Simulated scan of single mutants.
Amino acid sequence: MSRPPGPFPVDPAAARPVFAPADSPSFRNALARVPAAVVVVATDGPAGAGGFTATAFTSVSDDPPTILVCLNRKSAQNETFRNNGVFSVNMLAAEDQAIANDFAGFTKLPAPERFRAGDWTRGITGAPMLLRARVSLDCELVDINPVATHNVMIGRVIGLTIEPPVADRPEVLLYHDRRYREI
Rank of each mutant, 00 (worst) to 15 (best):
N90P: 02
D119R: 14
T43N: 02
V152A: 12
E113W: 07
V39I: 08
V157N: 02
A36M: 01
R114M: 04
P65L: 08
M1F: 15
V18T: 15
G155R: 05
R82D: 10
A32T: 06
D23Y: 03
V166E: 09
H150M: 07
P12H: 07
A22Q: 02
G105I: 04
A127H: 07
R28G: 08
I144C: 04
L92P: 06
R114G: 11
P112F: 08
A49P: 04
S88F: 09
K74I: 04
S2P: 06
A98R: 09
P12K: 07
T125S: 11
N72F: 03
A54L: 03
A127N: 04
E79W: 00
P5I: 10
S26N: 12
A13S: 15
T43E: 01
E113R: 13
N29K: 13
A20P: 01
A167D: 15
P170C: 05
I67W: 05
A148W: 11
L109R: 15
I154L: 15
M91Q: 10
A49M: 07
I158G: 04
L160E: 03
A49D: 06
S136K: 07
S59M: 08
P110V: 14
A54N: 05
G48Q: 05
I67E: 01
L31I: 15
R28F: 04
N83A: 15
L71A: 05
V135A: 13
P5S: 13
H150F: 02
F27L: 11
L174R: 05
T66Q: 05
S75M: 00
A93M: 05
A127F: 04
E95H: 14
G123A: 08
F57L: 13
I67S: 06
G50D: 08
P165Q: 10
P110Y: 12
V39C: 09
F106N: 09
R169E: 10
A167R: 14
D11S: 06
P4R: 15
P146C: 08
V142M: 13
A56M: 13
A94C: 08
I158S: 02
T107E: 10
S61V: 08
R116M: 04
Y175E: 00
T43H: 03
G6E: 08
F27A: 01
D143K: 06
E171V: 05
L109F: 12
P9I: 05
V86W: 06
L173T: 03
I183K: 09
S61L: 05
P64A: 03
A32F: 03
N78T: 12
D63N: 12
G85E: 08
T121E: 11
F57G: 08
A56Q: 11
S61K: 01
A56L: 08
I124D: 14
N101A: 15
P25G: 01
P165S: 07
N101R: 14
F27G: 01
V152Y: 06
G155F: 02
P4A: 15
F106I: 13
A36D: 00
S26V: 12
S2V: 07
N83I: 05
V157R: 04
R178P: 01
L71N: 02
A20Y: 11
A93R: 10
L131A: 12
P165L: 12
E140N: 14
F19P: 03
P170T: 02
R181W: 14
L130Q: 07
R33G: 11
A30T: 12
A20S: 13
S2D: 09
M1S: 15
P65N: 01
V166W: 06
R82M: 08
